[in-house]
Design a protein around this nucleic acid. Structure first.
Length: 525
DNA sequence: TACTAGACTTGGAAAAATATTC
DNA sequence: GAATATTTTTCCAAGTCTAGTA
């Protein structure tokens, strides 16, 4: 790299960190002052006080960036054969880390050093995430099991435990947030994960038989004199109807985001006669923006909760997630705020999925996507619009316009031919018959219809992420049963990973209903 | 009861793999 | 068959919630 216009040599450690920064030149992070400041503070520590480099502004990382770009290009240019071989070698070398006796392991690699990429306006973005050594790692293995050999010569594990009350295989402290941990868990497809997944959905399903009385109860409490009880009622209403998250307290050294219990007064505004306007940053700094017509008593309650409070003050000042969840436990064993999200997502999928369907497989899977989309919207699962989206839309529109012109030409030719005159637009040596033209016209109409539909679906889904609800919120038994009823191969809606993850749900009866009145109710009430 | 360490689920972005189009 | 679009997988950040402690 260059410093003040002159080439400069760095130690491998200094250079490694410089490279982390250099390669991010074209990302959003590089433009954020907090990111740059945090990076410079941490790099400076490594450089030391007497280093030639004293000012970040005088650093020119372009040579490193160009080198990295060239490396990337080299990799891209490798033949498919070479890539395949490299991949196989890697898989072979790692195979022994990928399995435990009973099942597969999830992510078994430690996180490599890098610059922390927090989401939203994270105060720690750009900080150096240091390299993890065996001395950082705690292993959890069977008492009689041989201790895995430490792969770095001269190093040793931090600790070896034998704790069979937890599921993790290893952990280390997150270097960015030393109080937090990074775990190695079993694979999503493992029986252990499958079991707890099934329990999660069973618990949500159990809500079916309780939900009416719960709604009755909190509706009654909208008028409670006691402020805490009233806040619990309104918060539960929002969590139930809007699928909001619980909203735990957050520290100052995290991005400023909220959930239900941590909403601030400025996040909800009143719009007469009875609408609430929500606008706040939720998990991952994803914006939640929604206008909802609400129960009049809820509207009045929010009005009261906001009264006399300045910006930045908690809307539910008498409430936190533990109080809320403690209250929910009175309704049902194990009931917490997140269960409502699972319940309402699964309920939505089941009620949205139509039982009367079009004839083709494509129409059926499109119906599934449509229902999936409703769930994703409920849960506010969003994605950023892809880079080439608008260009892609324009191309599709142009194509449709082209087809429409063709259609007009076919129509006029058909008119001519029917009157026994020669076609104007056909350039074929032998003029087409009326039948041929009619067939082509029908084909073109079908193509126009399909492309127009594709176009609107694409535009519709440009900010909606379907994956998260599919992986975490919709009871797979709903999907499997629906597919069985409509003779849709399950592979059409679940990819390989999901098939493995949801192995426990595959034997469900075709008539399974998530929201049967007695669905999953207690054996002994 | 409040606090917090700990363990687990949920989340979007980016990379990699695969399918489609020209 | 290369370029482009779409889907799948990987990565690791960021939530939720429990249980133990003071």
């Amino acid at each position: 790299m260059l410093y003040n216009g002159r080439p400069i040599d760095l130690t491998p450690e200094e250079e490694e960190i410089a490279t982390m920064f250099a390669v991010m030149k074209d990302t959003d992070y590089a433009t954020k002052p907090v990111f740059v400041k945090n990076f410079w503070e941490d790099w400076k520590k490594v450089l030391g006080p007497k280093h030639v480099i004293q000012k970040l502004e005088l650093c020119d990382f372009t040579p490193i960036f160009d080198w990295h770009a060239a490396e990337k290009e080299k990799k891209k240019q490798m033949s498919a054969e070479e890539k395949k071989q490299l991949k196989e070698e890697k898989a072979k070398a790692e195979e022994r880390y990928a399995w435990v006796l009973i099942d597969g392991v999830g992510n078994f690699r430690v996180e490599p050093p890098g610059l922390f990429r927090g989401r939203g306006e994270h105060p720690k973005m750009g900080k150096l995430k240091r390299r993890i050594f065996p001395e950082d790692i705690v292993l959890n293995i069977g008492k009689e099991a041989p201790v895995p050999e430490c792969p770095l010569p001269g190093h040793k594990w931090k600790e070896v435990r034998h704790d069979n009350t937890v599921t993790w295989l290893a952990f280390w402290n997150d270097p960015i947030n030393v109080k937090e941990f990074k775990y190695v868990f079993l694979h999503q497809s493992s029986s252990l994960k499958g079991k707890s997944d099934e329990e999660k959905y069973d618990k949500a399903r159990k809500l079916t038989s309780k939900i009416d009385s719960i709604r009755e109860s909190y509706t009654k409490d909208f008028k409670e004199k006691d402020v805490e009880a009233r806040q619990i009622a309104v918060a539960t209403y929002l969590i139930d109807r809007l699928a909001l998250r619980a909203g735990n307290e957050k520290d100052d050294d995290e991005a400023d985001t909220v959930g239900c219990c941590s909403l601030k007064v400025e996040h909800v505004s009143l719009s007469p006669p009875n609408s609430l306007e929500f606008d706040f940053l939720g998990k991952d700094s994803i914006r939640y923006q929604n206008s909802v017509v609400v129960n009049e008593e809820v509207y009045d309650a929010i009005h009261d909760f906001k009264k006399g409070k300045k910006e930045g003050v908690d809307l539910f000042d008498r409430l936190d997630t533990s109080k809320l969840n403690a209250h929910l436990k009175k309704y049902m064993q194990g009931l917490t705020a997140k269960v409502f999200r699972t319940y309402n997502a699964s309920y939505t999928l089941e009620t949205q999925l139509k039982e009367t369907l079009g004839a083709t497989l494509n129409e059926k899977t499109a119906e599934y996507s449509r229902a999936n989309k409703e769930v994703a919207i409920l849960c506010n699962h969003q994605r950023t619009v892809s880079k080439g989206h608008s260009a892609q839309m324009e191309r599709l529109e142009a194509k449709i316009a082209e087809l429409k012109t063709l259609r007009e030409e076919l129509a006029t030719d058909l008119g001519k031919v029917k009157k026994g005159k020669p076609p104007v637009h056909s350039t074929a040596k032998r003029p087409p018959t009326a039948e041929q033209l009619e067939k082509k016209l029908a084909q073109t109409d079908a193509r126009i219809a399909k492309m127009t539909l594709d176009l609107s679906v694409k535009e519709d889904l440009k900010t909606v992420a379907l994956g998260t609800s599919k992986i975490n919120y919709m009871d797979p038994r709903i999907t499997v049963a629906w597919c069985k009823r409509h003779e849709i191969p399950i592979e059409k809606v679940f990819n390989k990973s999901l098939l493995a993850k949801f192995a426990w749900a595959m034997n469900v009866e075709p008539n399974f209903r998530f929201c049967e009145a007695d669905g999953g109710a207690d054996e002994d009430p």
